[in-house]
Each structure stands twice: as structure tokens, then as C-alpha cells.
Design a protein around this nucleic acid. Structure first.
Lengths: 244, 244
DNA sequence: CGACTTATTGAACAGTATCAAAAAGGGTGG
DNA sequence: CCACCCTTTTTGATACTGTTCAATAAGTCG
């Protein structure tokens, strides 16, 4: 038996509020309707029509916005424990597309079930709203990243953020993590060219800071890396002692 | 007597849902606790501690994030009818600062009152959540702006967005609008240098597209401007016929 | 193996920043 | 109403960061 509290979503929410067994089992129920999505096949979430969100159980996804010119901006990547399209059921839809980066396992969550769960376990509601709020803080931080950091800082900051997020669900350590992103995807997230990303990664590697290779990010000198790009992860709000 | 439905917030929410007189008066009650804030004096909204939001009645504000290096990234400007710090009461706090750009009149809204109003008038709740969702769509669009548009497109797109938002509350037409922003502020919002913004503005003016001068934005050729930067305002979600 | 995607490198170029300085506004006290 | 100070706008010259184009190498998958 897989312990409920070991699912990524439980680990993640548990970092914000301590969840009781009862609450964990409500969460587990939400997490039952498992589906598999194939890498690259759009998991289009065009709002209105679509009344369900997903909880990502394994694999990575990304949300992006396409331009008329054909270029795209990746808004964020989603890793296990993250919601996909949460906003489109809490609010009205955001108008971006979600696409699995790898093959993905996710459970469908209907608006009704979620709201239902909320009313039964308010603490769960708090935790989910925390997650939504954190998602937005990340988008804001990405804005700062694009607006006020150079390619090197931007790249390092982003990979550090992913590390911190993955650590929360047990998929990373300060040594590094498995990362299925291509340099093209990284480029689309960071507002850079894949060519330039490649040079920046080489530089970071040659400076002994981090290595992005063969589907893995390795922090060669975590502390120096954090210092060199001024990475302050308070916006991720995952440090504090468990609240409540 | 000032008709309730002529307040900026009523105009704005009314563009999304048709509000009855009863709903308008609930909105009006929320809008009673008026305060004045002086330009430049931080209206710090550091989350947790602060349990109230504001509805902006007149003047402009901006929300930004400061870097250790001293540079800042403005996330968005708020214009009449917008909420300030809405997220910090619906959710947990976002970690940015809000500062009035001009002297500002705003009414304080306590979390309790808002939630109270929601339960009395669900349609108002829908409208407020729509506003919050729209705010997020704007941040995402700003991300695209920084990541995938050059200085010229970026500047024009941003000024067009502000125009569309102000039009909704009767403060702009396709001819232009009063704009209290300095070129430095524009620079901090667009991830550019004030010097470069200045050159871009000159170029746009010389091309007969728009004029940014003396506290006013003038669209010299609105249609050509929209076409030239591929401005698609569907993300603002303010076109449709009134829903419901 | 062969076709395709991804990673890597070079050289030339474009866009934006930086530094510096002058001009133009705007507000304030006398 | 003027003189002065301070902020904002404007312009030039130069340096640099990141792009573009092009080509090769290295993986990956059927």
C-alpha cells in the first residue's frame, strides 16, 4: 500500500498545513480519477467549457501562451503535486494552454468535488488556496526574472526555483534533480534563444556552479550558486514551520 | 447625487455581469470607508498582518517587487476601479509592495465585509473573482511582453492595455487618456531603461502611432498601432456582452 | 541504419544598456 | 513674479548582451 501522505500533492500541501488522517483521505479521494496523458499532446484547458482541473501525480507539464508570430512564452512548468488548471475552476479561465512535457499521470478533479471537499475540510481549502497563491507568486517572480535579470542569473534562478519546488515533494536535493526539459523549453520559459541558453549553461558548468546534462540538473556548488544569483526563495513560502 | 453605478468599480464589474440596483448598493456599501493616500508613500501590503484590501476610486497606484541589487520590477499599475491587495485577503499574501503613483482615493475593504457581501450577493462574488482572474491574466500577458516582444512592441502593447482598461471605466477613448506615469516608471514596468523608453517613444511618435507627452497618451493612429503590435485584448475579457 | 530531434559551436549583427551631459519642466520660498 | 532646485525628458557616443544564421555533432527512436 502506498501511504496517502506520500503522494506529491499531500507532501506539498503538508508543507503548508499539517493535515490530519481524515483530511488526507479526503485529499486521496480527490486524487482517484487517474488518467494518463502523452507528452506533447495538448491538454488544452480553454476555460469556460472545461470544468475540471487536474492534480499532477507524475511527470512534468508546462503552461504557455502562443503568439501570432509563432514564438511562445512558457509561463510555468508544473511538477508532481501541482495543480493543472486550478484557476479555471476557481475563477474563470486563464487563456493559456497546458501541455505535458513528459508522459503524465494526473487525476481529474471536478469543480463540484473540490468545492465539496472544501466544505468538509476547511483546512484543505486553505491549503489549496495557498497553492494557488503560491502559483501566482511564482509567475510574479518569473516576471522579475525576465524584466530584471540577465541570462545567467535568470537561468540559474529558474533552475534553483525548480529545485526548491521539487525538493518539497521529495524529487530533488541540494545535489540536483532529474529534469526532462530540453534547452528549447528552457529558452521559451526564460525569454531567450536556445542557442544562448546553451552558452549560458556551458558557462555555469565551467564555473563549477551547475550542470544541466542528460536529463539531470546537478548543483555543483549549491551555496555559491544561490549567492551568485541572489536566490531568495521566500516567495515560495515553503520554509516556515507547518502552520496551524 | 453621484449615481452608484457610475463609480469606476461599478462600471468595471458591470462590464462583466449586469448588476441589479440591490447589488450595486451592496457594492456601494463596501466602497464607503474612503481614505486618501499620498503619492509615493508606500501603501505597504505585506500580507499576513494586513487583512484588508482597497478599491481604488481615483488616482493610480503600482505594485512592484524590489531586488537586492536595487532595481525594481513593476508588476502592474492599478487604475480607478481596480482592487489593491485583493489577493492578500482572498488568499495569503503576495509579497510585493503597493505604492500610489499619484495621490489616491481608495476605500478600505475588510475581508469580513467582502465575504459577507459575497454571501448576500453571489453575483457580486462572481464579478470580484472575475476581476481577480483578469488581474492574473494581465500579469501573464506582461510576462509574454517581457519575454517575447521587443522594446517597441512592448511599450505600445502596454500603453494599449492601459487604454483598454481605462476605457472600461470611462477614463479613456481610442483617442487617448491622461497618464501620470513618468518614463522611469514605464521603464521599470517594461524591463527597459528610461533612456531607451525615451527613444522608443520618440520613434512611435515620429511614426505617427502614439504620443506620450505632458501626462497624456494620445493614440495618433489607433488602428495602425493595434495592428503593428498585434494587440489582442481578449485576455482582458471585457468585450463580450454582459453575462448572465 | 536512417530520420529526426536536441545540443554545440562560430561569426556577424542588432537591440538595449551604460555613461555623460544638456535641456526642459515644475514646484517652492523669498 | 523671479530665482533656484530638483525631477524628468532628451540626445549622443560607446560598450555589451543576446540574436540570427549557419553548420556540425550527438542523441534517440522506430
Amino acid at each position: 500500500m502506498t501511504a496517502i501522505h506520500e503522494s506529491p500533492i499531500a507532501l506539498k500541501l503538508g508543507a503548508f498545513v499539517a493535515l490530519s488522517d481524515a483530511e488526507l483521505s479526503v485529499l486521496d479521494e480527490l486524487h482517484r480519477r487517474r488518467r494518463t496523458f502523452l507528452a506533447g499532446r495538448d491538454l488544452v484547458l480553454q476555460g469556460q467549457s472545461d470544468q475540471s482541473a487536474y492534480i499532477l501525480a507524475s511527470g512534468w507539464a508546462c503552461s504557455y501562451k502562443l503568439q501570432a508570430s509563432g514564438s511562445r512564452q512558457i509561463v510555468d512548468f508544473q511538477v508532481p503535486g501541482d495543480f493543472l488548471g486550478l484557476r479555471s475552476i476557481l475563477f474563470r479561465t486563464a487563456d493559456h494552454t497546458i501541455e505535458p512535457v513528459t508522459n503524465v499521470e494526473a487525476s481529474e478533479v471536478h469543480a463540484r468535488d473540490l468545492l465539496n471537499a472544501f466544505s468538509r475540510t476547511p483546512k484543505l481549502a486553505t491549503a489549496v488556496l495557498w497553492a494557488a497563491s503560491r502559483d501566482e507568486a511564482m509567475v510574479v517572480e518569473h516576471l522579475v526574472n525576465l524584466g530584471r535579470r540577465n541570462a545567467r542569473e535568470r537561468t540559474a534562478h529558474f533552475l534553483l526555483e525548480l529545485g526548491a519546488r521539487l525538493k518539497l515533494v521529495g524529487l530533488a536535493t541540494n545535489a540536483g534533480y532529474e529534469c526532462p526539459l530540453s534547452q528549447y523549453m528552457l529558452a521559451d520559459a526564460l525569454g531567450l534563444t536556445a542557442v544562448h541558453i546553451n552558452r549560458v549553461l556551458r558557462e555555469l558548468r565551467e564555473d563549477g556552479l551547475l550542470t544541466f546534462q542528460k536529463g539531470r540538473v546537478t548543483f555543483d556548488d549549491f551555496d555559491r550558486l544561490v549567492a551568485s544569483v541572489d536566490f531568495d526563495k521566500t516567495y515560495l513560502d515553503q520554509d516556515g514551520p507547518l502552520l496551524r
